[in-house]
Nucleic acid binder design. Structure first.
Length: 594
RNA sequence: GCGCCCGUAGCUCAAUUGGAUAGAGCACCAGACUACGGAUCUGGGGGUUAGGAGUUCGAAUCUUCUCGGGCGCGCCA
């Protein structure tokens, strides 16, 4: 019994069946036991009477009254009161409420682990930035949201794989190779100026940032002048392209992994788009879908209202996405015969399906919103409906400093890199702050506020609460000895002295943790963890400050050992749950503030 | 023109996924430190949830319309 709300829900359902013998399973499934919004109402409330009234053809208030009467007989319930339009408010016996504390100490950070995921194999794909340069702030939110969501799902009982899809097959990678080749020519002493070189590059010289200088130097060190013409001007691509491209992609991915590691993100699987292309996976898949009657040659209608200037009707290889709810059928081959990005992406998602995942979650930027419906159609088609795809869309982050927007020029080298951001505000602050908004809402990231060490910075507020817990426990170890305050020892302590409202408020909050984990996981909303931690920290700071007005209310009372130990149980449990929550966020708990 | 996301206190954001009197922080006003770390805490003012209509025991949340903002719209990734 580590989830008090699950236990009480079971109690309510059991009792409800006595009141309403004909209770349907459907109605029962809608019964909730939730935290009371107002402590004056009690500890918990249930909507049981309201959600069952219609089927039972009885008035909610009538059921609520009967249910409350029956619940009062339950051993863990002190009060059960019908209220409002049909709620039943519950107040637990104090010992039943306090029982969560030893349960937390015994479970440690595993407290809150759930089984809602039922071991389902889920693949969370996130970041998946093109390997064409250092990661910048635009990539950051997806990285943090995806990583925290994966942690959250794992805690809720899913079997999670964290994955990165390397987009290393498109035209932009060829452009990257041209840019790296320029740095290579420089390294071996080319006579070409940058502009002269740019004129020889199809599509012009992109990626002019100097982060490719080391790559050029490495190529020169490894290959000498072998990749260039005798006059050290641009040689035909077939001489060097594959070599330079592969080396550069590898270098960029090393940099991406380093940046992600600095953010605390370590993914389990990296899948290469090029790998899928080279094994012909996409072509194989297209033929398979053709066998299912889902591929045809056809001509699409032009988009209504806004027709591109160069639009002309053209027969294309199309996937019947409309059969799976998409708006239009989607092209799989470009006019030059090569596969579209979408074609490769179908193959990639089919690969995930074949690896046994029954739930795929793609964390995408909001600019991919229009892409989701065709992906869902593709996953439905290749998995024959056995696998679901969900998209978590991350809206754009506006970086400001003191209310003034930080310009993020696309001009190479002058944008704000992820590494710059981490160096300035720290990994934990970046992660926590990125999770203080719903992913699908635009957010403002104020560098000044994130550095500030005050209450308006949730990271410090939460970490300060943890540091205070640890501070008390260190002082307690001095006073009582380390053995007396070990978790195992504290789990046996009598807790009758914990009766004050601020103490009960913290206990109530701690009891909500498993329910919070489950709710956030099912909704795919890791930001709820951040808000829970903030609220828990607020409850704890409030409790702490009682000791300021009245020294008798401080945690450590030298001449009252039993009472002190009981309070230490509360402190240790609070610290444990904060650590548990920070682990989901991917932020480190701190022992002391500096 | 069509599709998706969004609109909540002056500002930045919540709201237990349809629940009770819509809550926090910042800012503003008034208070609390011989400290288990005051980087904290207590109190106050501030709202027609963009607007209208509907669904029901009950709506910020669901439906619909209007207004406003963001993103996307065949052979980019």
């Amino acid at each position: 019994m580590t989830d008090l709300f699950a236990a009480l829900r079971a109690r309510v359902l059991h009792t409800l069946q006595q009141v309403l013998p004909d209770l349907t399973e459907e109605a029962a499934s809608r019964v909730e036991v939730s935290p009371a919004r107002d402590p004056a109402h009690g500890d918990m409330a249930t909507n049981a009477a309201m959600v069952t009234a219609k089927a039972a053809r009885r008035k909610p208030a009538e059921i609520a009254a009967a249910l409350a009467d029956a619940l009062r007989a339950a051993p863990e319930i002190a009060e059960a009161t019908p209220a409002g339009p049909g709620f039943v408010n519950l107040r637990l016996r104090p010992d039943a409420l306090r029982a969560v504390l030893p349960a937390i100490l015994r479970a440690g950070e595993a407290y809150g682990d759930g089984s809602a995921g039922a071991g389902q194999k889920v693949n969370v794909e996130y970041v998946s930035a093109n390997p064409t340069g250092p990661m910048h702030i635009g990539h950051c939110r997806g990285a943090v949201v995806g990583d925290a969501l994966a942690n959250l799902l794992a805690k809720a009982g899913y079997a999670v794989t964290k994955e990165y899809y390397i987009n290393d097959a498109g035209a932009q990678v060829t452009a990257l190779a041209w840019a790296a080749y320029w740095r290579y020519l420089q390294a071996i002493g080319t006579p070409l100026t940058e502009d002269e070189y740019a004129n020889t590059v199809p599509g012009g010289l992109q990626y002019r940032g100097d982060y490719l200088v080391p790559v050029g130097n490495e190529l020169a060190a490894r290959h000498g002048a072998a990749l260039a013409s005798a006059t050290k001007t641009a040689a035909p691509p077939d001489v060097w392209l594959a070599t330079v491209r592969d080396h550069t992609i590898a270098a960029m991915m090393r940099s991406v992994r380093e940046d992600l590691a600095a953010l605390g993100v370590v993914q389990d699987v990296f899948t290469s788009e090029r790998g899928l292309v080279e094994t012909g996976a996409a072509d194989t898949l297209i033929e398979r879908l053709r066998g299912d009657g889902l591929i045809y040659e056809g001509v699409l209608e032009p988009p209504k209202g806004k027709t591109p200037d160069d639009w002309e009707p053209r027969p294309q290889t199309l996937f019947r996405a409309t059969r799976f709810g998409d708006d239009v059928d989607r092209p799989l081959r470009k006019s030059d015969g090569s596969n579209t990005y979408f074609a490769n992406d179908i193959a990639y998602h089919a690969d995930k399906v074949e690896r046994g995942f029954t739930l795929l979650i793609d964390v995408l930027g909001a600019d991919h919103g229009g892409y989701v419906s065709r992906l869902k159609a593709a996953v439905a088609a290749v998995s024959h409906g056995t696998t679901a795809l969900e998209a978590v869309l991350c809206q754009i982050v506006h970086v400001v400093r003191g209310g003034v927007p930080v310009r993020m020029s696309k001009r190479a080298g002058s944008y704000v890199t992820l590494r710059d951001l981490i160096d300035e505000v720290g990994k934990d602050a970046v992660r926590f702050t990125m999770l203080t908004r719903k992913a699908d809402a635009q957010m403002e990231f104020d560098l000044d506020a994130v550095i500030a060490q005050t209450r308006d910075n949730p990271v410090f507020y939460v970490q300060y609460a943890h540091a205070r817990c640890r501070s008390v426990l260190r002082a307690a170890a001095e006073m009582l000895g380390a053995a007396a305050i070990a978790d195992a020892a504290l789990a046996e302590v009598g807790l009758e002295s914990l009766t004050a409202e601020p103490e009960l408020a913290v206990i109530r909050r701690l009891s909500v943790w498993p329910r919070t984990v489950e709710g956030a996981a099912l909704a795919r909303e890791p930001h709820r963890i951040a808000f829970f931690l903030y609220d828990l920290a607020a409850d704890f700071h409030m409790l702490w400050n009682r000791g300021k007005d009245d020294a008798a209310l401080r945690f450590l009372q030298p001449d009252r050992r039993e009472e002190t130990l009981a309070r230490l149980v509360l402190v240790a449990a609070t610290a444990t749950v904060i650590r548990s929550g920070l682990a989901v966020m991917g932020a480190a708990p701190v022992e002391e503030m500096r």
